[in-house]
């Protein structure tokens, strides 16, 4: 079984959002993902990192950690901040719920992570930071182009 791990620590500056998602995308290439799968993971990572910057640290410059693991066909991604935490995780995960509507936040962050990854788990407590754990199965087929996997309906 294929196994690999990486850990990334960076400042909670908004210019690092692109850096973070591109780094995770580069790490996952060894699973031979489709473009669609790479785009899904990039979007989910971007959401989690943006949440840490805006909500976790509220604009303060501190550290965000991303930990990635490859376990067989699975990519596991953790985005960790040590910021203010979430009092009501269930409520925060409701689509359209946002505490920062005035900043043009759509309240779709967790909904996007859920939609683009297979699993999503959020551990958080006030003043203890937030850990977002996500996973996605990057299935490899033995034959056929990777692209054909994304659109099974087309093959019929």
């Amino acid at each position: 079984m294929q196994q690999n791990e990486m850990r990334l620590e960076f400042d909670s500056r908004s210019c690092n959002e692109a850096f973070a998602r591109v780094t995770v995308a580069a790490f996952m290439t060894q699973l031979n993902p489709t473009l669609e799968e790479v785009a899904d993971v990039k979007t989910a990572v971007s959401e989690a990192v943006t949440n840490a910057i805006i909500h976790g640290y509220e604009g303060r410059v501190e550290k965000i950690t991303i930990s990635c693991q490859i376990e067989g066909e699975y990519l596991l991604v953790e985005v960790i901040d040590k910021g203010k935490g979430i009092a009501d995780v269930k409520r925060a995960m409701e689509p359209l719920f946002t505490t920062k509507a005035e900043c043009d936040r759509a309240g779709m962050g967790f909904a996007f992570m859920e939609a683009f990854m297979d699993t999503l788990d959020v551990q958080s407590a006030p003043d203890c930071g937030t850990t977002v754990r996500m996973s996605k199965r990057i299935a490899r087929t033995e034959t056929g182009s990777p692209q054909s996997r994304s659109f099974p309906a087309v093959q019929l």
Binding site: R21, T43, S46, T50, D104, R105, A106, F112
Partner: peptide, 8 residues
């Protein structure tokens, strides 16, 4: 590329 910030 666009995430939910673009939606907002």
């Amino acid at each position: 590329f666009m995430d939910s910030s673009g939606i907002g």
